[in-house]
Amino acid sequence: MLDDLFALLVFPGGLFVVVCGLVYMWLNRKLIARLQNRIGPRWFQPAADTMKLLGNEEIMPAGVDPVLFHLFPLLAAAGALTAALYVPLGGVNPAFSFEGDLIVTITLLGLLTLMTGLAGSLSADRFALVGANRTLTQLFSYEVPFLLALLGPALAAGSWQLQEILASHGGRWLLIMQPIGFVVAILGLLGKLELHPFDAPEANTEIVAGALTEYSGRGLALFYLSRGIELVIGLTLVSALYLGGIGSPLAFLAKTLGLLLGITLIEALMTRLRIDQTVSLWWRLMSVAVLVQLLIVVIVGRI
């Protein structure tokens, strides 16, 4: 009982993953800044942003459903925090594990995007509506290839349970054996986090702030925090499946930070794709590529 509470509130869920999310968000912003020849934000910047947002007034626009308006950010944060319990965060075994937890984790991660889209379509604001439309369109384009990319390792291991998949691969780097799946997983992560080049949903130079235009104060802070948590969990998941598992806190740090550097480089190099370009990239190229990868895995068998 006490163990469960600890896992839920302190480690690996709750406090640990929130702090981790803030730190990783800072690292991401700092790296981008350095790559753009800037100095970049100070180490406490995401924490200060979140605290300030939590202290600000929360305005509810006229005409929205008050229950849903407050429920969506809560559900987004809850989904992200729950997903933290099923991945090997910090290099220790997941707090909970059962047959099929990989699928549950991916679904929970998708909750944030879904909630962002629904939150945007709640208000009558035209920018929020366009943003919501783009968020949901993007969700439907990357989600399936991303899921299939993470299923490659599962198929090779013959199990849907993260623990068993990692045990069966025993520290082998699947990146070498399933390179296409790895690339799709990385790009899927970028799409999930709405980073460049897949940031058309929140394109703040064209549609103000996308789906979250009408959110202020606490609701915005919750979405902001969930984004950070999702960054950490996504990095953990991809590096556990493709970069030879995460056996120790040191391996966790080294592999997730390496991966973070990788996606930040892509983010700094790319410009924003239009939403139709995003969709055609995912459905014409990525989904075919990942299906080829799955076919190879099935034919070759347990590699």
């Binding site: 753009q36 800037r38 934000p41 910047q45 200060a48 103000v208 009408e214 202020s216 915005l220």
Partner: peptide, 21 residues
């Protein structure tokens, strides 16, 4: 612009007045 880089002071330009201080 990057030359002055106000993000190092925590200043950010936001599109929506709902997010702004």
């Amino acid at each position: 612009t990057p030359y002055y880089d106000v993000e190092r002071l925590g200043i950010e330009l936001r599109g929506s007045p709902r997010h702004a201080d």
